[in-house]
Each structure stands twice: as C-alpha cells, then as structure tokens.
C-alpha cells in the first residue's frame, strides 16, 4: 500500500494489482456532517414529540426516556448507519462519501464504534476543530477517530461513463477503416492519457479559441506519435477532429456496466 499526494489511497493487492481510492477532504466531510447533524436534530424533535404524549402519564419517565434516547441517538446514529450501509450515514450518502478500512478491507463493527466514540475528542473545542486540524495535517486526511479505528473516508468512485455520444455526434470516425491500428492505439495509450483526451473533448467549449487550437494540437501530436494512421485518413483532418477520432476509437465499444 502506498500513498498518493494525500488525495488518494493506492492499494496494492498481493496479486500485484493496484487500485486507487480518492480521499475525502475536510470540506466535503463537513458538509456530510452538517446533513447528519440536521438528521439528529430531526430525530430529537420526533423523540420529544412522541414523549410529550407519554408525559401525560408520567413526566418523570418521559424525561428519563428523553435523556436516554437522546444519548443513544447521539452515540448511536453514526454507528447504526455506518454499520447498516457499510460505511455510510445519510450525510455521507448525500455527499457520496464512504468510510472504509485503511487497507481497503471490509469495515469491522469495532472500527465503526470506535471512530464514532472518538467524536467527543474530534469535536473539541468547537465545530470539530481538533478533527478538522487532524484531517488537514494527516497524510491520509484522517481525524483522530479514523486514526484510532484504522479507517479512511473516501469519495465513492463513480464508474466513468462520459456522455461522449452526444459530443462526438454522428460524424464518421475515419479511423475505423483501420481496426488493427485502432487496436494498437488502445494498447499504447494509458488510462490517464485517455482521460486527458476525454477531458479535452468534454471541455472544449470552456477553452478560448486560441488556446483551444494549441491544446488540441499538442494532444493530437501526442497521439500521432503513438500510432501513425495513413495519410489518406488524416489528410485534411483538423487537430480537434483527430482527438475526437481518438476518443471515439477508445470508447467505440461501450460496455454496459
């Protein structure tokens, strides 16, 4: 297991396979916590409403239950949901965050309980200052509770399914006439390089016309070096169209996941 630039956790399995998980920063975590806090307030409200009825019979019992239940909700909210939804609370679901074991394994109950008990320290002195600082200083964005429990909070990885069909339109991809060269292109291009090309196509309208020309030229040259398509295909093809053809080639066979 190795660390990225504090933004992702790379896990290398004994089989030599590496996969990475993007770590959540303090801001998104804070937002998730705000949603959870709102949920806890709502639960408190429900408890107090229900107990008002009980208070008619016994005020003492209603009060005792109110104290007990509020305590249970305060401690148990995070534990219950993170156990039920394997590392997610309502706030984390909304913010697309998930608690995971620091080695990428399944979360254990003792980890979930511990990281939630540690909130008493992390929330000191106000507004999770200790936890926030720990998160900023820690190389893996861990608050003290995460450190003790051996957990990390990651952003749930979306499986990339770019809306390329619309962008690429129905224009004919002239590269298709050379399936063997297309296969070579797929083999020689790394995932990160594909990402670059896809981003260039997706964000083309955000670029100024001048820089758009130079960016596409640079990217097109880069892919030209990878595989050389015959003159008959590339003749008259603009840099931008070249890149779009490359992207179309790499995404031509969409897999339904």
């Amino acid at each position: 297991m190795a660390l990225g630039k504090t933004t992702e956790l790379k896990i290398q399995t004994p089989e030599g396979v590496e996969f990475s998980l993007p770590l959540a920063g303090p801001v998104t975590r804070c937002a998730a916590w705000a949603f959870d806090l709102a949920m806890v307030v709502v639960l408190f409200q429900i408890i107090s409403t229900v107990l008002q009825v009980l208070a008619i019979i016994s005020g003492d019992m209603a009060m005792a239950l109110s104290i007990g239940l509020q305590f249970v909700v305060m401690i148990g909210y995070g534990i219950f949901f993170e156990w039920l939804w394997k590392g997610q609370t309502i706030g984390k679901r909304i913010m697309k965050l998930q608690v995971i074991d620091e080695r990428g394994m399944t979360l254990k109950l003792n980890q979930i309980v511990l990281r939630n008990l540690f909130r008493v320290v992390d929330s000191l002195p106000v507004f999770y200052l200790v936890g926030g600082l720990s998160c900023l200083l820690s190389s893996r964005a861990q608050r003290l509770g995460d450190l003790a429990a051996g957990t990390l909070v990651v952003r749930r990885k979306e499986i990339a399914e770019p809306e390329l069909d619309e962008l690429l339109g129905d224009e004919v991809n002239s590269f298709r006439e050379f399936p063997r060269l297309e296969a070579q292109l797929r083999q020689r291009v790394s995932a990160e390089e594909v990402r670059l090309a896809v981003d260039a196509v997706l964000r083309r309208n955000e670029l100024e016309s001048k820089s758009r020309l130079s960016v596409y030229k640079e990217i097109a040259d880069f892919f030209r070096d990878k595989v050389e398509f015959p003159e008959e295909v590339t003749h008259g093809l603009s840099d931008e169209q070249y890149v779009r053809n490359v992207v179309a080639t790499l995404f031509e066979r969409k897999m339904k996941i």
Partner: peptide
C-alpha cells in the same frame, strides 16, 4: 487504454479483495 473497462475491473477487484 480502455478507461471504462479498467474502472469496471478495478471496482470489481477492489470489492472482491
């Protein structure tokens, strides 16, 4: 360099792991 299949398999392998 197929991103989609790589992501799909990464996800599968991570869960299985």
């Amino acid at each position: 360099g197929d991103v989609e299949i790589k992501n799909y398999l990464e996800n599968l392998v991570a869960r299985a792991y």
